[in-house]
């Protein structure tokens, strides 16, 4: 590469700023809405003139919101954990073992990932009502796991194929038992992939709206995205714009943190499973 000239650098900075604007303008708009006070809320300005934390106070005093936040965190964490455990087992078998029906499993996973979720809403609604899972944590966790599994299986098996499995042989020669080889050599190499996949799965669960909306009816299991759509103001005439914006920012914070800290891994994870032209 030739040394970059100042002009070229400036040009690229210009382009980069456009990308930053693209990514952050809608997010900061919500942030500024959440910080506006009641008088300036409807002034149509992009930036708040008198920032206040009132909206945040309001939502954290709202039991329904707090409850939905707990639901969101709990349901997504449990779904991620289970999906990763089951997905790791499946992906290991697909990447490493020979057994019949491998292609069928991959095809099924692909089918599930392309599945129109709306087609499941009715039957799941009926079934869950019948067996008492409607409006409960497991009632959401089970479909979340199902739709997270294809993602987990594809991403993990792509990662597992990258592991230099020859090291298992080396470890055997170095005097390791099969368990030691797995524990001390393979596990440390597999962990980054598993962790990356966990982030992707968590983001996918966190994002769900349709199931949360259709398979819950009270704050018992309703997650934040669904709860936001049910927000009402303190009085019927007050528009809940501020609190909705505040709630939106609250559930965006963990996502932005993930992205900031694990950018490289998320990129690697998203691209690993997909493109093997």
């Amino acid at each position: 590469m030739q040394p970059a000239t100042t002009n070229r650098k400036l040009m690229w900075w210009g382009i980069n700023i456009l990308v930053l604007l693209y990514a952050f303008v809608p997010v900061f708009w919500l942030l500024s809405l959440s910080l506006k006070n009641a008088e300036t809320l409807n002034d149509g300005n992009y930036f708040p003139t008198h920032p206040t934390g009132a909206s945040y106070q309001a939502i954290f005093q709202n039991d329904d919101f707090v409850r939905s936040l707990i639901n969101s965190i709990g349901i997504c964490l449990i779904s991620t954990l289970v999906a990763i455990v089951i997905g790791t087992m499946c992906a290991y078998a697909i990447a490493r073992l020979q057994f019949p029906g491998k292609a069928a499993i991959l095809a099924m996973a692909l089918l599930v990932s392309m599945f129109p979720q709306i087609a499941l809403v009715t039957p799941l609604f009926k079934i869950e009502t019948a067996i008492g899972l409607f409006d409960t944590w497991p009632g959401l966790i089970i479909p979340y796991i199902t739709f997270a599994l294809p993602l987990a299986i594809y991403t993990l098996s792509a990662f597992f194929r990258e592991i230099p499995w020859d090291l298992e042989k080396a470890a055997k020669m170095d005097g390791a038992t099969p368990y030691q080889a797995f524990r001390q050599v393979i596990t440390p190499l597999a962990m980054p992939g598993v962790f990356t996949t966990a982030i992707l799965v968590f983001i996918a669960c966190w994002n769900d709206f349709l199931f949360a909306l259709s398979l819950t009816s009270t704050s018992n299991a309703r997650t934040v995205p669904a709860a936001m759509s049910y927000f009402t103001g303190a009085t019927t005439f007050e528009k809940p714009t501020g609190p909705i914006a505040a709630a939106a920012i609250v559930i965006t914070i963990p996502i932005v943190l993930f992205v900031l800290v694990f950018q490289r891994r998320i990129v690697a994870g998203l691209t690993s499973g997909a493109v093997k032209g």
Partner: peptide, 19 residues
């Protein structure tokens, strides 16, 4: 650039829709 480009991907659809 890569980090900021990930923000729209990772953000909850409902949140973006409200924005």
């Amino acid at each position: 650039v890569r980090t900021s480009a990930l923000v729209p991907y990772a953000i909850v659809t409902v949140v973006a829709a409200f924005s």
